[in-house]
Design a protein around this nucleic acid. Structure first.
Length: 823
DNA sequence: GGATGCACCGTTTTT
DNA sequence: CGGTGCATCC
């Protein structure tokens, strides 16, 4: 399937000649000719003018600047359909690159929806997947075998640690994490060790960073392995050192399309440029890049906004088409976002517009007392929407950093609102799944030392540190993979008898499994391996609370494997497609970072945590100055433009960070939102600690409907003000903490010490309010188990709410539906 | 080899 | 505060 050079016989294209096709008129065969003759396809009619232009301008370089919500994917897919429809190229002559597997999958589905099976064989995928595909074909030219392993971050770090240890580099001073990052950035720039400017490395790792990089690469080669950066980097080496190979692909790819061009790094850019350059200088490349400089948010991992800004220089005569008509958001949301992003310099510049007749709700900005209240308010809003029948999967809470999802998660649990954390701990990253995969990797590739080390003594089988040290030594000396070196060693007397016996046993196991893998399918193989290795038994005997879940995950792994034809295919999937399939059960509120929200849209979006230092993040500014700040601003822009009809921004005056309370100032981005599209509401107390008078002057805050803050003390406004001010008449008073309204200036210490105690009644109050009439089928003192908090004892039953004293997680009130009986 | 204890640290993340 | 990684002890 994946062999481009065998496609010439594809009988879907009768009459296809045996060589690569010229650009146009295409040799698409009679079918395509007939299709082209049938007149313009109806998909063109539904496009606006700019979109149609972008779809039809198929010859020569084109840059499509597609603002948020302007139908970017639509243009890309229609363009693909158009090229195929006109018979300009056959599917395998089209290269279409995306950043995520999800995007690739969607694109394939949508194109197939337009032109049907004609998409078969198209080179459509992520940079990494396509790079891998090419690299496997020519692996030997860069010193690899075509069954090379793709390492993940974990493996990379372990490998680098070994090198650092051998090099006697103080890991405290130069953590492997940091060095791998440095190496990764070099790879992003297309730099092999030989090309890194020595001065570029500076003091890193005592000035030995480049040498370490070189060693790391050498180790990867002996392991017959690549890291993610290598997948592209080796392609570059391949193309530059073997012009004939490059030429093959240049001839092959008649049309190139690139999604999210603003996120490409230098190495990806070079890869594209090599492929897009035609042998005939007079014939410009048919390359079409789609992107939005305002949504470039991956600079920190090597993306170069410069690529998109420079497109016209790279491809002289390029057409630049702007998509500015927004089909997603209300005028107020669009206005707020546009006003904010206008503060950035160095943009290509776009003016988004919409012709929606109604301005819609203004973007709401709320200042709250602390993070807990913020979560509570968002929770209330979600609940209110839910009550109105608003679909939960149309609601998202988008945060700057992953840890921020926690307080919202807890809130959703308490309220019994179904939620999902997008991009949380992933299936294939779990310990037990990685272990199982390590067994399979050793079977598939005996030279995979990292996998071998991972499971050689898991479960413990008496192959401990000492034994492995000797094996390591022997392997290094003879430059052999560990498993081979181990095999040799057990035939000598170098190991203690016990160790020798155990090691022989596991090596024999692997030999046997390897043989077995020829005979049975990969599912059966995995079952056998997990069983015979004692791995399953290890978890069955384990008394750890998570053991049951791990066994579940192993079962789930087997199910997941069914989708793949064989072991090799499955392993490729695991390394390239780390996303576990969305096994969503019904509509849920989405909690995720702003980064993972890019490309998505929701009816209602909550954007909490807009505080200086958190958003914009302090480190972004410290490390990258103005550029860092502008990337943060783009992130804010991405956040706002995810919303179709409702967007609610909030900030808290006090936040607990790393365990201690800190006062926070509202984000500068809040100041930058254009006033006419925004509605601001803040508790008076919120600004007391931060000289907040200025905020009032700037915005004309609405203080609890104007009646709540007469009490003098800022505390008075903080809670009592807003609620008693009657802003939310439909919501019953929930016994909010009145304590704060006494006396001036509640110190953070005091907040901390009083916080929990005084909040408990709030939770109970809510239980009565929302709990409904059904009484949970639980008794006090009963043992129970909760997915997230683990085992515990029920101490109180109120409606369908249970208060549980968890063994590990403390006392929490949760919804009975989330609680199970222990087995 | 595994359990316990202490020091340290603390963005964003796809592939 | 909570997780991680390392050292130490049994």
């Amino acid at each position: 399937m994946s062999d481009p050079f065998e496609y010439d016989d594809d009988d879907a294209w009768p009459g296809a000649p045996s060589g690569p096709a010229p650009a146009y008129p295409g040799p698409g065969g009679n079918a395509a000719a007939a299709r082209a003759a049938a007149g313009p396809p109806k998909w063109l009619e539904t496009l606006n003018e700019a979109q149609r232009e972008a779809v039809l301008a198929v010859d020569g370089p084109v840059l499509v600047l597609a603002g948020a919500g302007t139908g970017k994917t639509r243009v890309l897919t229609t363009r693909l359909a158009q090229i195929l429809h006109e018979g300009r190229a056959r599917p395998y002559q089209i290269l279409c690159v995306t950043f995520t597997n999800k995007a690739a999958r969607e694109m394939r589905e949508r194109v197939a929806g337009l032109v049907g099976p004609a998409t078969e064989g198209m080179w459509l995928g992520t940079f990494h997947a396509l790079g891998t595909r090419i690299l496997r074909r020519h692996a030997e030219l860069v010193g690899l075998k075509s069954n090379f392993t793709i390492l993940d971050t974990d493996d990379q770090i372990r490998l680098l640690k070994q090198i650092l240890e051998a090099e006697r580099i103080d890991e405290k001073r130069w953590p492997a994490r940091m060095l791998i990052h440095v190496i990764q950035r070099w790879k992003d720039k297309g730099l092999t060790p030989g090309k890194v400017d020595a001065s570029d490395a500076g003091e890193v790792a005592n000035g030995r960073a480049v040498a370490i990089y070189a060693q790391y690469q050498e180790r990867l080669r002996t392991l017959n392995a690549c890291d993610f950066g290598d997948l592209l980097l080796h392609n570059l080496t391949l193309f530059t050192e073997h012009p004939d190979v490059l030429q093959q692909y240049r001839n092959l790819f008649q049309y190139i399309l690139v999604d999210e061009y603003q996120d490409t790094n230098i190495s990806q850019y070079l890869w594209l440029r090599l492929l897009a350059k035609t042998d005939d200088p007079k014939r410009p490349a048919n390359i079409c890049c789609v992107g939005d400089d305002d949504q470039s948010i991956y600079g920190w991992r090597g993306a170069e906004v410069g690529n998109i800004l420079r497109f016209e220089k790279d491809f002289p005569g390029a057409r630049v088409i702007r998509l500015e008509r927004n089909y997603r958001s209300t005028p107020n949301i669009l206005g707020a976002a546009s006003g904010l992003i206008a503060k950035n310099e160095g943009r290509l510049g776009k003016t988004l517009w919409t012709d929606l007749p109604e301005d819609g709700q203004k973007v709401r900005v709320r200042g709250l007392w602390d993070g807990d209240e913020e979560a509570r308010v968002v929770g209330e809003e979600v609940e209110a929407l839910q009550l109105k029948g608003y679909p939960l999967d149309e609601i998202a809470v988008l945060v700057r950093a992953g840890f921020q999802t926690r307080e919202f998660e807890e809130r959703m649990i308490t309220l019994g609102v179904p939620y999902r954390v997008v991009g949380g701990p992933r299936f294939y990253e779990r310990e037990e799944v990685r272990d199982a995969i390590a067994y399979l990797r050793v079977i598939a590739q005996p030279a995979d030392d990292l996998a071998f080390e991972r499971i050689v003594n898991k479960p413990t089988r008496g192959v401990g540190k000492t034994t492995m040290q000797s094996v390591h030594q022997a392997a290094r000396l003879e430059r052999l993979p560990l498993s081979i070196a181990a095999r040799r060693m057990v035939e000598t007397d170098e190991l203690k008898p016990a160790a020798r016996r155990s090691l022989t046993a596991i090596l024999d196991d692997f030999d046997r499994w390897r043989q077995l893998s020829q005979g049975v399918d990969h599912i059966e193989l995995t079952e056998t391996v997990l069983d015979e290795s004692g791995y399953t038994a290890m978890w069955k005997e384990s008394k750890k609370p998570e053991a049951a879940g791990k066994l579940e995950n192993l079962k789930e792994l087997l199910v997941a494997m069914e989708e793949y034809e064989d072991l090799a295919q499955f392993l490729e999937h695991v390394s390239l497609v780390m996303d576990a399939d969305d096994r969503g059960k019904g509509p849920m509120v989405s909690l995720m970072t702003l980064h993972s929200a890019k490309g998505l849209e929701f009816g209602t979006v909550f954007l909490p945590g807009w505080e200086e230092g958190l958003f914009p993040h302090q480190r972004a500014m410290d490390e990258n100055g103005l550029a860092g700040l502008e990337e943060e601003r783009r992130l804010a822009y991405v956040g706002i433009t995810r919303a179709r009809e409702r967007c609610e921004i909030s900030f808290a005056a006090n936040r607990r960070i790393h365990g201690s309370w800190q006062a926070a100032l509202p984000s500068r981005f809040i100041d930058e939102l254009p006033g006419k599209h925004v509605e601001i509401e803040a508790d008076r107390g919120v600004y007391a600690g931060s000289g907040g008078g200025a905020a009032e002057d700037r915005y004309g805050f609405m203080y609890g409907g104007g009646s709540g803050f007469g009490g003098g003390g800022y505390g008075g406004g903080a809670y009592g003000g807003r609620n008693s001010g009657g802003l939310r008449p439909g919501v019953p008073e929930r016994g909010r903490d009145q304590g704060f309204s006494q006396g001036g200036g509640p110190g953070f210490q005091r907040l901390k010490s009083r916080g929990l105690g005084s909040r408990a009644p709030v939770i109970e109050g809510q239980a009565e309010y929302i709990g409904g009439d059904k009484q949970a089928d639980w008794g006090e003192g009963e043992r129970c188990f909760h997915q997230k908090f683990g085992p515990g004892t029920v101490i109180k039953v109120a409606g369908d709410r249970l208060t549980i004293e968890f063994d590990k997680a403390g006392t929490k009130t949760v919804v009975a539906a989330f609680v199970e009986r222990p087995e």
